[in-house]
Design a protein around this nucleic acid. Structure first.
Length: 403
DNA sequence: CACCGTTCAGTTGAACTAAGCAACGGAATTCGG
DNA sequence: GAATTCCGTTGCTTAGTTCAACTGAACGGTGGA
């Protein structure tokens, strides 16, 4: 046993490694050059530049699907800004928050609390009035030596959808209340037309500048991948056609560069684990599947138990009958499952909401339809690829303690 | 056939409740002198 | 007598419940051509 483990380690050392610097493929790696986004970088930099002279930059809105480089460009510009302001001794505080984090930033209270925490304040998770938390936050930034604060709010559309646009209005208000400090909001959204139902005041203030990130096409993706690949892979381990394939797969999914990079990294890992010295096209297929599994696994394991049970019920129904399935049927199954899983039965009202949440997460597809006088309901189907259904099912069962 | 009221099966919104937490203030306890 | 601890009250957020209005098209009946 020990001997064979030794052998594995030995072999591992002797083998030529595929990766040179795997970090270059990770999502938070910030490359010096961002191909095909030069325009946006310049644009944002121009807008934020007044911060260097302690003037308030305009608020910005960044639109674009996932993996079109919004966060990357934003953090890139921030880095540069930080560097220069640091060397010139101009204090600027930059905060980045993702608004869709469950239990952290998904309500007004929690978002502001989290913001305050980013500036080093202790804020309890409940108990305080929201106004109080705003006050804590405002006080903190007015005490800050740097009077310029830039806040990035990623996936801001999720937050607004859940709890209205008051948050934004209140945050924008800071500038009026505190005359010696200024706060710039950078909203990042996947959804280009979510501003439609925004309070006009918020809309005009936040939309002072708008920057659109259009999806990458396959050619651009290929450029990006090649760029990173030379950094990440050792020479001669990664044939062109693998890159092309990754780019093609990701282009199919609305040009998601994040996905393309993931594909490439995992393909490499698979090849490495197999003990090869070169990545092959077939590894990409395996990687694609692996990513899919990992993605759904992550979503499912972080679900609350009630939601898991609802999802499991949907799962069972989908197996026993052809989609579309309806809310009523799901609720029936759910009720039975509650005993087995030993959780409290929620009302249908609540379950209906949980189903909407699952829909938002993209685990299922739901559409409200009217069947004439046979009522009105949601038609639901799973949006989990067929080839990983079994895996997901057993995952759900073990998560719920059903075996 | 076109038109129109009815009906179903949930959806959706609003008000409400319970649980969990923080802050506040007064009562009870402790403590050094 | 001052400091500290304890405890009850009040007020907050949040998940979930209760109540009720609302929805939208198929059904089926009506009347006119």
């Amino acid at each position: 046993m020990t001997a064979s483990a030794e052998k594995v380690f030995q072999d591992y050392l002797e083998k030529k490694s595929i990766f040179k610097n795997k970090d270059a493929l990770s999502l938070n790696y910030s490359p010096d050059k961002i191909p095909h986004r030069e325009k946006q970088v310049k644009n944002i930099a121009e807008i934020l530049a007044p911060a260097m002279k302690k003037e308030k930059p305009s608020n910005i809105f960044l639109y674009g699907k996932t993996g079109t480089g919004k966060s990357l460009v934003a953090s890139h510009v921030c880095d540069k800004l930080n560097n220069i302001s640091g060397s010139k001794d101009i204090p600027i505080s930059i905060v980045y928050l993702n608004c869709k984090m469950r239990k952290v930033t998904d309500t007004e209270y929690r978002l502001v609390a989290q913001l305050a925490r980013e500036f080093g304040q202790e804020v309890p998770s409940t108990g305080l009035p929201t106004d109080e938390v705003y006050k804590i936050f405002f006080d903190t930034i007015s005490d800050l030596e740097s009077q310029t604060v830039i806040i990035f709010l990623d996936e801001i559309d999720m937050l607004i959808e859940k709890c209205g646009d008051e948050v934004l209005y209140n945050l924008i208000r800071v500038n009026e209340e505190l005359d010696d400090s200024n706060l710039t909001l950078v909203g990042i959204s996947n959804n280009a037309n979510f501003t439609k139902n925004l309070d006009p005041r918020v809309k005009s203030s936040l939309g002072e500048e708008e920057i659109i990130f259009s999806p990458y096409d396959a050619v651009q993706l290929k450029d990006i991948l090649s760029e990173r690949a030379t950094e990440a892979f050792n020479k001669g381990t990664l044939p062109q056609n693998v890159i092309s394939k990754c780019a093609a797969y990701a282009a199919r999914e609305h040009g998601d560069a994040r996905r393309a990079l993931n594909l490439l990294r995992i393909s490499g890992e698979i090849a490495e684990r197999k003990g090869r010295e070169e990545v092959k096209e077939e590894d990409v297929d395996l990687a694609e599947q692996k990513i899919e599994i990992k993605k759904t696994e992550e979503i499912i394991t972080t679900l609350p138990k009630q939601t898991k049970t609802v999802l499991y019920s949907i799962f069972l129904l989908c197996k026993s009958k052809n989609p579309p399935i309806h809310t009523g049927e799901i609720y029936d199954i759910y009720k039975k499952k509650c005993d087995k899983v030993s959780i409290k039965q929620l009302t249908q009202r609540r379950v209906s909401d949980l189903i909407s949440e699952l829909d938002m997460l993209g685990v299922i597809n739901g559409k409200v339809t009217s069947n004439g006088r046979y009522g009105r309901t949601r038609e639901i189907s799973l949006s989990i690829p067929n080839n990983i259904l079994d895996k997901v099912e057993s995952l759900l069962e073990s998560e719920l303690g059903l075996n």
